[in-house]
Design a protein around this nucleic acid. Structure first.
Lengths: 247, 247
DNA sequence: CCTCTTAGCGTATAATCTACCCTAACAAAA
DNA sequence: TTTTGTTAGGGTAGATTATACGCTAAGAGG
């Protein structure tokens, strides 16, 4: 079997957003082409002189209008099945780009962003849509598989590092944070213990501002203290695979 | 900037082994070529009709004689800098494979295996060598960077999942396990608490066999109970980023 | 038989988790 | 104005777990 040099590399991004209630994913609509599925993840072929993360950021800026600094982007795994894109799908790609590739290997990324009015307006203007994670049926090519993989990554990351804050506005209530955990992990959490744990972490800064016009005791807004987190990271390693570990 | 289709994909593997004292990495010696560094990680171009993991397993079998079932292999990150291989290095690759590629993107893998007599004999016969992690100076291309990345992955994995057992013989003493943690993480651990923690995890099975001809009280040999671990995994999720979590 | 070394049991204390108690503060309904 | 529904957020008892460290056991070698 000869070495392969006539292949293409692409990036595909699973972009997550949280609206306070449900986790949503950004999907792109492509022009109908025979029997091919219309919804797909945002993605692109890699260009000359471009690294993979650069390609992913380019795709994301195109789809959301957001720049690197407003996005949390992480490489996950590679999908390299020689037949992951073939037949009509391969045709579609070759026609779209005016190339003649025989194989497309793609690198999956997942991205987190703060869903706000400006971003949703931008994406809908672009013909993209924010779809609740549970409402997603079929996607183009193997994008459903890529999305599943990304969801798994997100779950694991949320339990290991403070990526939750990438999905929340700068200022958020502890309840919003809790709702996010409950939505992503699919569990119920006791609000009093959740509060205690989050506050005791030392990564939340009280802003002094409170909710207004809510039909209950107004909650205080907090921000994530990124510096405190970084400092704490340096100070400890953890052994997680059998519960807790200190040394 | 046009879409790129004349590039190559390769895999490079950081293979770790533990001899009871130090962590070692498998390095390949390549024929001298001008000023290029001689030592490199085992790797290969991807072939037609081959997925990336398949390519990595092929490389590993070639280098160690071990089959898939005796290896722990995991994809880590991708190195896609357009100039990561250029000049003399690119020349070397094109000549070696009889191709004419302009860019090589590589996928880093890391592998763990049980270092025994048979494996070390095989690798040395192949012109490869097991080098202590601290003794590694310069490597070909960006392989030093790939190796550093792999080491980071290993450290994190060891704290999150029981990959340590992939580096130990089937039967091992608790002391050996402790030495491995100490070597990889670079810390000192109290042996009594370490023992308690490991045993209380329920993943260690006593074999009844003991050390012989050692100049101290002989230790019992244990095995890793993979099934118990899998069962436990299903039963719990964890929230690790602020210490411990239950819900 | 003394020494050196590691195995492995046990225990006290500190820290943390969990499951709840409670009241406070607001809007909207009555 | 009072009642009702809702979430905020302080607190505490009891279980669980981590940590530090004392101690004896069991071998080899001098």
């Amino acid at each position: 079997m000869p070495v392969q040099t006539n292949q293409s590399l692409s990036v595909d991004c699973a972009v997550f957003g949280f609206d306070g209630e449900t986790l949503k994913v950004l999907l792109i609509e492509r022009a109908a082409h025979r029997s091919l599925d219309r919804l797909k993840l945002p993605g692109s072929m890699i260009l000359e002189n471009e690294t993979l993360p650069e390609a992913a950021y380019r795709v994301l800026e195109e789809a959301t209008g957001l720049l690197k600094r407003d996005l949390y982007l992480k490489q996950m795994e590679i999908f390299s099945d020689p037949n992951r894109v073939s037949g009509e799908e391969l045709e579609w790609i070759n026609r779209k780009h005016g190339i003649n590739t025989v194989r497309v290997v793609t690198v999956g990324f997942y991205a987190l962003l703060k869903l706000d009015r400006r971003t949703t307006d931008y994406t809908t203007k672009k013909g993209a849509q924010w779809v609740p994670i549970d409402a997603i049926q079929r996607l183009a090519m193997d994008h459903k598989e890529i999305l599943s993989s990304a969801l798994g990554y997100l779950c694991r990351e949320m339990q290991q590092s403070p990526v939750a804050f990438e999905l929340l506005p700068k200022k958020f209530t502890i309840r919003a944070l809790q709702r996010l955990f409950e939505a992503v992990l699919g569990i119920e959490i006791d609000n009093r213990n959740f509060r205690k744990k989050m506050l005791s972490s030392g990564f939340l800064l009280a802003t002094g501002e409170k909710e207004e016009r809510v039909a209950h005791k107004p909650a205080e807004y907090y921000t994530f203290d990124r510096n405190a987190y970084r400092r704490a990271l340096k100070a400890k390693l953890k052994m997680g695979f059998i519960d807790n570990w200190r040394y």
